[in-house]
């Protein structure tokens, strides 16, 4: 599949740059990124701290605005959207999972999962909701508060919430960063299943080669550019490439 294949891309960035600050204090987080992620693909963004991987995710998801360049979500150019349309787009077409603080402490599991629908004023699709709840294995805990759940369970709730609106893309920013390796593996298997079973597009930032190995494709960033694109393969290979990217 080609980077230029607009019709099958779920997300596509054309010449995206991002500069924070001005003048001599300016930080170039992204220096012209051209990438496309196909529908149904699972992409891991890797790179050392400050390489721009999180900025890339934020720009792709419409949480942050590029300084220049174009971000397409499906066929929608994000730069053409105002605040209100962006909110609606996030609500309907994007799902988010962060490292921590993913959940509203005031709401129970069900409340958190259905929150995007409620904000959109939509009724949940009962079958789909039920399927998601089962998939993340939280049927017994739908009325628990986040504080009553373990870290892994909280991440599962976040994933369920990210999926509830059947988004075009699920954006995950270090989704296992706060978990131990066994729980992390459970969460990654869950994400992998979602990609394989329902064809969910996933873009994930991680620094952990083991976590990245669950993806289809790994993009390695360094100094605001994509320096390497490789099939995920095994963790060891990823780790070697990472080291060489850092040295380079």
């Amino acid at each position: 599949m080609s980077d230029n294949d607009t019709h099958t891309s779920a997300v596509r960035l054309d010449g995206v740059t991002k500069v924070y600050g001005e003048g001599s204090a300016a930080v170039h987080a992204l220096r012209g990124v051209n990438v496309a992620m196909a529908k149904g693909s699972f992409t891991a963004l890797m790179g050392p701290s400050g390489s721009g991987k999180s900025t890339l995710l934020h720009c792709a998801a419409g949480l942050d605005t590029p300084t220049s360049g174009r971000v397409l979500l499906g066929r929608t150019d994000l730069s053409s959207l105002n605040e209100k349309r962006l909110t609606e787009l996030r609500r309907e077409r994007a799902g988010f999972v962060f490292q921590a603080f993913n959940l509203i402490p005031a709401l129970d599991v069900l409340g958190n999962v259905t929150l995007p629908l409620r904000l959109a004023g939509k009724r949940p699709d009962r079958t789909w909701l039920s399927e998601i709840i089962d998939r993340v294995g939280l049927r017994e805990r739908v009325h628990h508060r986040p504080s009553q759940l373990s870290g892994g369970q909280q991440q599962r709730v976040a994933i369920a919430r990210a999926l509830v609106a059947r988004p075009d893309v699920l954006f995950a920013d270090e989704p296992t960063g706060a978990l131990d390796s066994r729980t992390a593996a459970d969460v990654m298997r869950l994400i992998r299943e979602v990609v394989d079973d329902v064809g969910q597009t996933v873009i994930m930032v991680t620094h952990d080669p083991v976590v990245a190995s669950y993806a289809d494709t790994v993009l390695i960033l360094a100094d605001g550019r994509v320096v390497e694109r490789m099939p995920a393969g095994d963790a060891e290979a990823i780790a070697r490439r990472m080291i060489s990217a850092e040295v380079a």
């Binding site: 949480l63 605040e83 209100k84 909110t87 609606e88 996030r90 609500r91 309907e92 988010f96 603080f101 993913n102 959940l103 509203i104 402490p105 929150l115 995007p116 904000l119 959109a120 919430r161 609106a165």
Partner: peptide
């Protein structure tokens, strides 16, 4: 701050 930002990210409008 974080709670409000999270609500925005998952699709809450400013008005809401």
């Amino acid at each position: 701050a974080r709670e409000l930002a999270l609500l925005r990210v998952v699709g809450g409008s400013r008005r809401q």
